[in-house]
């Protein structure tokens, strides 16, 4: 059956949860599909706000109103993406942990989170003062661009995992 685990990642992978997902023909693709539903919701809703921040107008809605409409869905979908992502990871934990694209994806997720936190604790606090201005403050545009870059990076590295898993030992 399964060899004796030699590290914590193998211990997780050979757990009953990990082997159940790995051995099933339909579980991994199904969880992966739900992961896709969740991640497109996260990135689609975030991109709507980011594009607004960098100056793509196209509508009269205030950016604070847009954020209020999208954020609950962004967070809900993020939780679903995190749960499904964890389940996928458990089933092949030791392969993921030596895959550079997986590690880069986790780093980019952290950067996207830090960028968002910093923006919310600084420039966003005064959004009422600048959201009706013809042009947003540079800090808001930078936050929008960084967010777009980090999230596109998350998608790219996420997709790259599927093409490289198992080639790094």
């Amino acid at each position: 059956m399964y060899p004796e685990p030699t590290n914590i990642w193998e211990r997780i992978e050979y757990s009953s949860l990990g082997t159940t997902i790995a051995e099933s023909t339909w579980m991994f693709p199904t969880i992966e599909t739900i992961h896709v539903f969740a991640l497109v919701t996260v990135i689609g809703t975030i991109a709507l706000v980011d594009l607004r921040l960098i100056g793509v107008k196209g509508h009269a809605l205030r950016v604070s109103q847009l954020a209020r409409d999208t954020l609950p869905w962004t967070w809900g979908a993020f939780v679903l993406a995190a749960i499904t992502g964890t389940l996928l990871w458990v089933s092949k934990a030791s392969s993921y942990m030596i895959n550079p694209y997986f590690l880069a994806k986790m780093a980019l997720l952290a950067l996207a989170g830090l960028n968002m936190m910093y923006f919310h604790m600084t420039t966003w606090r005064t959004v009422d003062h600048w959201e009706l201005d013809p042009s947003f403050p540079a800090a808001a545009k930078v936050a929008g661009w960084l967010s777009l870059i980090f999230w596109v990076g998350v998608i790219f590295t996420g997709r790259a995992i599927g093409f490289t898993l198992g080639i790094f030992y």
């Binding site: 896709v36 991640l39 497109v40 919701t41 990135i43 689609g44 991109a47 596109v152 998608i155 997709r159």
Partner: peptide
């Protein structure tokens, strides 16, 4: 995927 994100 980005286009699906936008459309969805």
């Amino acid at each position: 995927i980005l286009a699906i994100a936008g459309s969805f």
